[in-house]
Structures are given as structure tokens and as C-alpha cells.
């Protein structure tokens, strides 16, 4: 149910990764530069597939777009302190995974305002922090963790090397046995049999 109309009354169907579809107003969807570039002028038959993102994420993104339809023209990223109560609730309602999904979706859909707010929020989380705090915020492994990881990897590598060496040694032995001349093999077998016979006769 789509048409390349410019009226905000027009609804577009969006398809999520689960295959579910839902309505989004044209005005909200036009905040996405990706949509503008791909569908606005040519229209789309059937639902618009944004199948890299789940329904919850897409609904969250377009919830923001619907809300900001009536706001004044966008004039660059706002400072976190300038965000409205609605904006804050919008961000606070999200868990970490959803936030990342929203950033990714917003980036793909090229919704400048939402991307900027998300970036401002991340920057705000990091500003004025020391390196340890920054490492925690961006969930980087610490130097100790990296060191421990490296040690484990070194141990693993050493163990693997040992196994490989043993395997190579065994293979070498087998190869040596295989490479023995036939006469020598016959002689070795004969000796073994003789020893067995002697021990048997002694008993």
C-alpha cells in the first residue's frame, strides 16, 4: 500500500526482519534520506523491506520520526541538556542492545537527527571520563584482560605446537619403518619369531 505521494497522510508499509509489516506515515518516513533516495520518487509496490532490522527496532526508529515530524526544522545536533522530556524518555526506555540497533538502523536509514542525538548521547557518556572509565563505557577489554587473553592464547599455541611436534615425530617413525628395505624387515620379523620360539621352548 504505497505511493510516491508527498502528502503526510499517505502511509507506507514497512517490512521487518521477522516478515511483519506495519504502517509508517510518509512524513515520518521522509526523514530517512535512504528512503528519499530509494523510494520517494519511484514509489514501491508492496511493503518496503528493511529486513536487516527487527520490528521493535524499526518501530522505535519511526516512533522518533513520527514525533519529530512536527518539530521545527532541524538545526544540527542539540546538546543533551537541550533535549526535551520526551526525547529523554525515548532514550531511557531503550536497553543497550536496542540502543545499538537503533543507532545502526538510524545510520542505515540516514536519519540525521536521530543519529546525531544518539552520537551526542554516547559522547556525553564519555566526556570528562578517565581512560579506565572510558574503557568500561565502550566495553573494551582492559590491559589485564588482554594480557590474560594473550597468555591463554600463548598456552594454546604452545600446546598445539607440542601436539603437532608429536604427530610429526610419529609420522616420521612410521615413515622410517615404511622406508626399511624388505630384506631388513624380513630379518627383523625372523628375529622376533626366533625370540618368541626360544622363550616358548624354554617354558
Amino acid at each position: 500500500m504505497t505511493s510516491p505521494a508527498s502528502s503526510s497522510e499517505v502511509k507506507y508499509l514497512i517490512e521487518s526482519s521477522e516478515g511483519n509489516t506495519f504502517d509508517v506515515s510518509g512524513a515520518a518516513l521522509r526523514q530517512s534520506n535512504t528512503f528519499n533516495a530509494m523510494f520517494l520518487n519511484i514509489g514501491a509496490d508492496g511493503p518496503i523491506p528493511f529486513t536487516d532490522y527487527n520490528e521493535a527496532t524499526l518501530k522505535k526508529v519511526f516512533e522518533y520520526c513520527e514525533h519529530s515530524v512536527n518539530e521545527e526544522n532541524y538545526s544540527g545536533p542539540k546538546h543533551q541538556d537541550d533535549l526535551s522530556k520526551w526525547d529523554l524518555n525515548f532514550f531511557n526506555e531503550m536497553d543497550q542492545k536496542m540502543f545499538i540497533d537503533v543507532i545502526n538502523a538510524s545510520n542505515f536509514l540516514d536519519i540525521e537527527r536521530l543519529t546525531s542525538y544518539c552520537c551526542e548521547r554516547i559522547a556525553r557518556m564519555l566526556r570528562g571520563k578517565n581512560t579506565q572509565e572510558m574503557i568500561k563505557v565502550i566495553t573494551l577489554p582492559t590491559a589485564e584482560e588482554l594480557e590474560a587473553k594473550q597468555k591463554v592464547e600463548e598456552k594454546k599455541a604452545a600446546a598445539a605446537k607440542k601436539v603437532a611436534e608429536k604427530a610429526a615425530e610419529t609420522a616420521e617413525k612410521t615413515e622410517t619403518l615404511e622406508e626399511l628395505p624388505v630384506q631388513q624387515l624380513v630379518q627383523t620379523t625372523r628375529n622376533k619369531l626366533t625370540r618368541k620360539y626360544l622363550s616358548f621352548s624354554n617354558e
Binding site: 543497550q96 543507532i103 545510520n107 543519529t115 554516547i122 564519555l126 563505557v137
Partner: peptide, 23 residues
């Protein structure tokens, strides 16, 4: 307070924008 966001797993555009906002 610690609030986490795996920044390095976000798109490069996002990282660039965040760095732009830094002093």
C-alpha cells in the same frame, strides 16, 4: 556511574560523529 555502549561495534559514521563531539 558507568553506562556502557560498545562504541567500536557501531558504524564508522557514528564513531566519527562521536569523536567530532569530543573536546
Amino acid at each position: 556511574a558507568v553506562y556502557t555502549v560498545p562504541l567500536l561495534r557501531t558504524p564508522h559514521v557514528v564513531i566519527r560523529e562521536v569523536l567530532k563531539l569530543f573536546h
